[in-house]
């Protein structure tokens, strides 16, 4: 029993770290531009699929494939901002959100055209498993956790202590005032989208060896990241990370209880949490 609890916890945290990465991407964009990016999950898919494709050609070593995955995701993020968000800077929030929906449809279609509709695989960064608190854990999972943690830490440091990070935060607080202080909101928005696509791509590359990846996986992953971000309280990146981990564990528990309705159970729990803490779990 204790072992099962441990297993669920460990697996939940592993998956949750991916959700945390996606929620972090949500928050980066939301805090900088006020846009709720519904194409976040597609960044994950693009990162995972392009890395899998590069490695699948057999001519690129794993490290190169990872680089290609990250690069493609980042480029896509930048393009999304340039093509869909920048022309709509003046539009209302709901229009911008729907625009990201349009983008996600396009990205999914492009992925299906380029990479087909079959699931793709990527070899793990490091095969094998270790014993952890009496539970066998694949080393790839540890990588997920570690890389996720490093990504988050780098982001936190960047946001707090670099001039660019401060400028991005200023944009979120008050774009008009930030502009008067010489911050260019357009550049910040491009940066936010690139960065957040990078985070999503990282999540995809880490996830693909465990669960494989296909063109339509992004939607559900994006939803999970969204749920994580909202659970923590939108605009609070650290709380969003916590939200991701909580969601991962909730999901593993509901999968253990009923594998058929695991989504239903996890999301029902999310709704209940929302109703109990309507301002976000960690909001004061």
């Amino acid at each position: 029993m204790q072992n099962i609890a441990m297993l669920l916890l460990v697996k939940g945290v592993m998956i949750g770290s991916i959700y945390a990465l996606i929620s972090l991407g949500f928050n980066v964009i939301y805090r900088t531009t006020g846009v709720l990016n519904f194409a976040q999950g597609e960044f994950v898919m693009v990162g995972g699929l392009s890395a899998a494709w590069a490695s699948g050609t057999g001519r690129v070593p794993l490290a190169g494939a990872i680089g290609i995955g990250l690069g493609t995701a980042a480029a896509v993020g930048w393009l999304v901002d340039a093509l869909a968000i920048r022309p709509l800077r003046q539009a209302s929030a709901s229009v911008q959100i729907i625009a990201t929906v349009g983008v996600s449809i396009c990205l999914r279609a492009l992925a299906a055209i380029f990479w087909g509709t079959d699931p793709c695989h990527l070899p793990p960064l490091q095969p094998g498993s270790v014993q952890l608190a009496g539970v066998a854990v694949e080393i790839q999972n540890l990588w997920m956790l570690g890389a996720g943690a490093v990504g988050m830490a780098a982001l936190a440091v960047g946001f707090r202590w670099t001039a660019t990070g401060r400028a991005m935060r200023a944009c979120a607080e008050n774009p008009e005032a930030a502009r008067l202080c010489g911050v260019n909101p357009g550049r910040m928005s491009a940066l936010a989208f690139t960065l957040s696509a990078l985070l999503g791509g990282l999540g995809g590359i880490l996830l693909t060896p465990v669960l494989s990846m296909s063109y339509d996986r992004g939607t559900m992953l994006g939803l999970k990241g969204f749920a994580a971000a909202i659970l923590g309280g939108l605009g609070h990146p650290v709380a969003g990370v916590a939200g991701g981990l909580i969601l991962g564990v909730l999901e593993q528990c509901s999968a253990w209880y009923s594998s058929l309705y695991k989504e239903t159970l996890a999301l029902a729990l999310v709704v209940i949490l929302l109703l109990l803490r309507p301002k976000g779990l960690l909001a004061r």
Partner: peptide, 8 residues
């Protein structure tokens, strides 16, 4: 793809 583009 066209659908998404038209939407945008």
């Amino acid at each position: 793809l066209i659908f998404g583009l038209l939407l945008a």
